[in-house]
Simulated assay, not measured.
Amino acid sequence: MFESAAIGHDFTPGVENYLAELKVVIDTVDIDQITVVMHRLLAAYERGASVYIFGNGGSASTASHLVKDFNSGVNERLVRKFRFYCLNDNVATVLAVANDISYDEVFALQLRNYLRPSDIVIAISGSGNSTNVLNAVRLANAKGVETVGLVGFDGGELARTVDSCIHVPVHDMQKVEDLHFVINHVMVALLKEHLEYWAR
């Protein structure tokens, strides 16, 4: 039944429209915001800081992917390594805190255990209003730790709470997440190239 329902349907206009809209969104992203965050990451690398990153849902997978790209991609040929950690990948800890304390504390509690003043925190939230993300960022701010946000829509509370923000200004969660992935790969590719050049 599914196959017969799909026969003859032309998805081409929809695909073309989605990609055209995505191209428009790309042009709205502030490149300066990306370069500021890249400089912060480079400074964190040079001082041997740990970078803690986290998010919910699709943002959690973006966080996990970014950590993978830095730890196994950028670090590959470097003697001194980036130290990236994804807080939402520790499933047992996340579920224990959510069940025993509150889901709103799943990231903040972990940061209380780990954070040093030299570290950096990266929070990803499409809406910018996830309570557990905001709680963790406020904790980091209170400890004097640098904070970075990747947001969409109007930026939400997160955009106003972090030290640096990369904002994808579109009210469409799929396109926000698309661009967060692209921004991740831009930063990874350019930092890898820069650091490998100086490591020769």
Rank of each mutant, 00 (worst) to 15 (best):
D172E: 12
A159N: 05
V133L: 01
T131E: 15
L134F: 02
T28S: 13
A140W: 03
T35G: 00
L78W: 07
D104H: 05
D32I: 00
S164K: 10
T93N: 09
D89S: 14
A92Y: 01
A20L: 14
D119V: 06
F70I: 11
H39Y: 10
A43Y: 07
W198M: 11
L191S: 06
L78I: 13
L109T: 04
C165V: 15
S125K: 03
F153G: 08
V79H: 09
A140V: 06
E76Q: 14
A140R: 03
E3G: 05
N184M: 12
Y85H: 10
S4F: 03
N113T: 10
V145Q: 07
Y52S: 00
G14S: 10
F153A: 06
N75L: 11
V162E: 01
G73W: 10
A49N: 11
I101M: 02
M1G: 14
G149M: 04
V15I: 15
Y103N: 11
V137W: 01
E193T: 12
R112N: 08
I101D: 01
V151R: 04
K143V: 01
H194M: 10
C86M: 02
S125T: 06
K192L: 00
A189G: 09
R116K: 14
V36G: 00
P117M: 05
V133G: 02
F2G: 10
D172K: 12
K81T: 08
E105H: 00
V145D: 04
P117D: 09
R77F: 12
V168Y: 12
V97S: 08
D89I: 03
R80N: 13
N56K: 09
V36T: 14
F82K: 02
G14C: 02
Y103R: 03
V145K: 03
G14I: 10
V37F: 08
S125D: 11
F82L: 06
D178P: 04
H171M: 11
V51N: 02
C165Y: 02
A92N: 05
G126T: 12
A108I: 01
K23S: 14
D69M: 10
I53G: 03
N132Q: 11
K143F: 13
G8I: 02
F181L: 15
S50A: 12
L22C: 05
Y197W: 07
I34W: 11
K68R: 01
Y18M: 15
T35L: 13
L150S: 06
Y85K: 11
W198I: 13
L195M: 15
T161Q: 11
S61F: 00
N141I: 00
S164I: 01
S59P: 08
L109G: 00
L158M: 13
L195E: 06
V106L: 03
N135D: 04
N75I: 13
V97L: 12
A142V: 02
E146A: 15
T161F: 03
L150Q: 05
G144L: 07
F82H: 03
N129F: 03
V51S: 10
W198D: 02
H65Q: 08
Y197T: 09
G55Q: 09
K192T: 15
V188L: 05
E157V: 15
A43V: 07
L19M: 15
S118M: 09
